[in-house]
Design a protein around this nucleic acid. Sequence first.
DNA 1: ATTAATCCAGTTTTT
DNA 2: CTGGATTAAT
Length: 669
Amino acid sequence: MLSSLNPEQLQAATAPFGHTLVIASAGTGKTSTIVARIFHLLERGVEPQEILLLTFTNKAAQEMVQRIQSRFGSVAKKIEAGTFHAVSYRWLKAIDPKLVLKQPKELKLLFKSIYERRDLSHFETKAFAASTLFDLYSLYQNSQMEQSFAEWMRGKYPEHEELVAIYEDIALEFEELKNEYGFLSFNDLLLKAIEYKDRLPRFVEVLVDEYQDTNNLQGRFLEALRYKSLFCVGDYDQSIYAFNGANIDIIASFRHRYPDAKIYNLSKNYRSTRYILDLANRVIANNERIYPKKLEVMNQKEAVPPKLLEFLDLYEQYEQIARRIKLSLTPKEEIAVIFRNNASADGIEAALRQQGLSCKRKGSQSLFDMKEIKALFDLLSLLLNPKDLLSFIHIFEYAKGIGANSAKELYEALVRCGEGDLVKGLQEPKDLKNPFAKKERSYQLALFEDSMQPGSKSRFSHLDIDERIKAHPLLTYPRMSEEAVLFLDSLLELQRKFHRIKRPKQAVEILRDSFILNYIKKVLAKNRAKRKDGSIDEEQYRQGIERIERRFALMGHLAGNYEDIYRFYNAMVLGSSEMSQGEGVNLLTVHASKGLEFKEVYVVDLMEGRFPNLKLVSKGGSIEEERRLFYVAVTRAKELLYLSYAKYDRVKKQEFLPSRFLEEAGLLS
DNA sequence: ATTAATCCAGTTTTT
DNA sequence: CTGGATTAAT
C-alpha cells in the first residue's frame, strides 16, 4: 500500500502525530494518501475505533473505508467515518436515542409561520422574506461563533438596523418552538455535539477530507473533539461552499493556528492529461493566488485537446451531446455530464432518454420528495415523536374539510384532552366540555359566533370506529369532518400497534396498511390521474395507485436494513439526498461531482449568467467562487473534456453570450 | 375565517 | 412541477 505512493504522498501519509495539513490539488492522489495514512496508523498499532475520518459526503467515507477494508480486513469497519453530521448524529444517538431530525424545508415552514405573525410592512427598509431570513439565520449559525444573530445581521446589513431586533426575536422564538416540538436541524446536530463535548469519544487521530470547505461551525466542532493528532487534506482552488459558510481562512490560517503544523504539498497530477490541466490552470490563474501552484503532469497518455462545442439552441445542445455520448466508445458509467444548476439536468436526461441511454442522477427530485413518501415519514415521525405538530398538520390536511388551521386546532385540543400528552389525549381523553381555545376575536359579529357552535358527537355515530373515538370530546369541533374522525381512529389504532413495534420494517408495513395512508394514497393517485376537464382517467388512477404501493414497498425494503426505528427514520432524513438512482451516464451538478473522476466529461450550459451564475454573484456570491466551480468541473476529466454552450433558448426566448471562462480558457478566438 | 380551486411565476449550490 | 396569490364556496 505505502509502496505505491510517490515520495510526496509517502511523506504526508507517514507524517508524525501533531497537526498536519496536506495541500492536494485536483487529481494528485488525495484519496490514496488518506487511505495510506489510515493504513499507516493501523500498522503502527492505533485501534480502528480511535481513528475518526470526516468527509463531505457519506459516499466518500464509505469508499475510503472500503479501500482500507480490501487490504486490512473487516477491522476497517470499526473506523469512525462519515460526514460531520452523520458522525455527530451517531454520537448523539448514544446519549439520547429519541432525537428527531427535521428536513430544512420543514423547519423553514415553521420559521415562516413565526415570521408571519409579525408585521414587518411599516418600515422604511423592506424586510427580508421569511425564506431569505431563514437562510441567513442558517448561514449565521454556520459562520459565527461569537456574535449574536442581531450583531451579525447589523454588521452585514446596516440598512436593516430598524428590523434587526425583530429578526432576532423571530430566531429566538424559532429556537423555542424547535425545542418544544422536539426538532433538530442539521446545524443543531453539530451544535448539540459541541454542547456535549465531554461525553464524546476520544481519538488518536482525526482526519478531515475537503478541509477547504469547512465552515466555522464545523471548525468549532473539530475544536471540541479530543484527539492527539489532526490530519487535514484540502485544496484552496476547490473551495465551493462559501454559500454554506465555508471559510477559506480556516485552511489558510492553519499554520498560524497550530505553530507546530507540518504542511505537505502534493503536486503530481495523475488524473488528467496535460491539455486538461493546462486549461484548468489557465482559468484558475485569474483568481488571486494564496499559494503558488505548479502541477506536474504524470499522465503521459496520448492526449486529445479539450473541445469546445457551440450550438445555436439550448435543446439542440442537449440533443447533440446525447448523440455524441451514444457514439462514444467510453463505457457509459465513465462519462459524466456536469452542470452549474440543477435546472440543466431535466433537459439532458430527456435528450439521453431519446437516444435510449439511461443515466444516474443524484438525489434532487428523488423519492423522498414524493408526497406519499413524505406522508409516510410524517406519520412515522408523529408516532415516534407525538410532540411533532408539523407532521400532525401535514397528515390531517389530507382529510377533507380540514386545512392547516383546523389541523392545528385539533392538535392543540387533543393535547389539552391529554393534559399535555397527545397519546393520552387520544387514548384516555379527559372529557372536557370545550377543548377548543376561546378566540380573542369574539368581539366580532354574532354571526361568526353562531358558526362556532359546537357540533354534536352523534353526527358520526354511523361510522365504524373505536368507542373511545365515538365519545371523544374532539367530535364537537364545528368543522370536524368524517374523514378527520376516521383519521383520528386510525391514529389511535396505530398508536396501540406501535407500542409493540421494534423493527422498522414491521413499522412501515403497519403504516402502509393504515387507513390514513391508504386514504392519502387514493387522494394522491386521484390528483395525478386528473385530466384538464376534471375527470379521472381510470387507467392512470390504477397505475398511480400501483406506483405509490411500489414506493411504499421500497421503503419497507429499505427499512429492512435497520434494526432500530429511530435510526431508520433519522438515516432517511440525513441521507435521503445522497442516494442516487439508476445507472449509466452520470448527471451531476458541479458540487455533487466533487471528489469524483470520469474518463469523459461534458461541462454544459457554459453561458454568461448561468455558469458563472451571475444572479448568485450579485446576491453575495463571488466570481472567484464561480471560477473555482469551473476548475472543479473540468478537473473531473481524465482524458476527454468537452465544454459546451448554446447561444439561444428557444423556449424562454433568451439570448446567451458564452461564459467568460471559455474566453479565459483560450477557447474563443 | 377557512378551505378548495384556479391561475401565474419562476427555478442555487448541500449536510 | 411547485409555491404564491387570488377568488369562490362552505
